[in-house]
């Protein structure tokens, strides 16, 4: 695979060379302005967590980065050697997988359909099988290759989707709340895998999460969104100790308590 990708010696050497810039993103659907003046500067080899209350515009921002919703503003990507600029290769791990659980689609079928031109209703070549195995190995999921998608647990399904998003190895990896419906061990495992990938491929990871414990532990940078724009961003310490963080989430405490039982806002006192 793309093993020759640039690996940063340190964060400073990377800075200003290999980065993703989201400039002045605005999204208007109908008459409603969902995002306005979003500016985010992301370095590669960093895990950036997008947090914010429900309706803050997190998912819309991911869709805008994917080009799925119309937006103004620009997405600039500069690779370390300045070789590839403009259109970064984006890997995406979706939030909701509301496909029919009875679907007779195996993990191998999904990979075949995604990475090759050979119809998934024919017998896959050894090459495809090999490549799928290698991808699944990156997330410790080789054993799931013949399993039906509907027979996977939430955590297994997320790991499979992560493996899929890594083939081909993307410049930017987008993850939309990849941890819902997964037990605590599965969560830690997932974040650990992300950390390894980040270091190995010097990948830019943008993650939407409500799990503040794990964000605090694993994210390099945190971007707080509210009402369609960036409230503040910085290291987890900076953001979680910011009084605006408390203001934003106090308003939606009800939401946090009800939807994310295990989450509590942890200031810097971890």
């Amino acid at each position: 695979m793309n093993e020759e990708k640039h690996v940063c010696k340190s964060k400073d050497s990377c800075c200003g060379v290999c980065c993703t810039q989201i400039q002045d993103f605005s999204v208007t659907v109908g008459k409603a302005q969902i995002l306005h003046n979003v500016n985010i500067h992301i370095h590669c080899g960093e895990l950036t967590a997008l947090i914010g209350p429900n309706g803050a515009g997190k998912s819309t921002l991911l869709k805008a980065i994917l080009g799925e919703v119309k937006h103004t503003g620009s997405l600039k990507y500069l690779d370390a050697k300045g070789l590839r600029t403009g259109n970064p290769l984006i890997g995406y791990v979706p939030q909701y997988l509301n496909f029919d659980l009875g679907t007779p689609t195996s993990v191998l079928d999904l990979f075949t359909a995604s990475i090759s031109k050979k119809p998934a209703w024919l017998i896959p070549t050894n090459k495809i099988r090999q490549r799928t195995s290698e991808s699944l190995a990156k997330v410790n999921a080789e054993h799931l290759i013949e399993r039906r998608l509907g027979a996977l647990s939430g955590g297994e399904l997320q790991r499979v989707m992560l493996a899929l998003s890594l083939d081909p190895v993307p410049d930017i990896l987008l993850l939309d709340e990849p941890v819902s419906g997964i037990d605590q061990n599965g969560l830690e495992l997932f974040y650990n895998t992300l950390k390894e990938l980040k270091n190995k491929y010097d990948m830019t990871i943008i993650l939407i999460s409500h799990d503040f414990d794990l964000v605090y532990k694993y994210a390099d940078r945190v971007v707080l969104l509210n009402e369609g724009t960036v409230v503040t961003s910085g290291t987890p310490d900076e953001v979680f100790n910011d009084k605006r963080m408390r203001e934003v989430f106090r308003m939606s405490k009800f939401y946090i308590q009800n939807n994310e039982q295990r989450n509590t806002i942890q200031g810097g006192n971890d």
Binding site: K63, G67, F99, T103, T105, K117, A120, W121, M161, L174
Partner: peptide, 22 residues
């Protein structure tokens, strides 16, 4: 048609956003 578009249809059926990201 089925040889050409089935793979794409399958990815769309799992998740349309995943499909367009690819």
């Amino acid at each position: 048609l089925w040889v050409t578009i089935f793979n794409k249809l399958l990815v769309i059926s799992v998740n349309p956003l995943l499909a367009s990201s690819r």
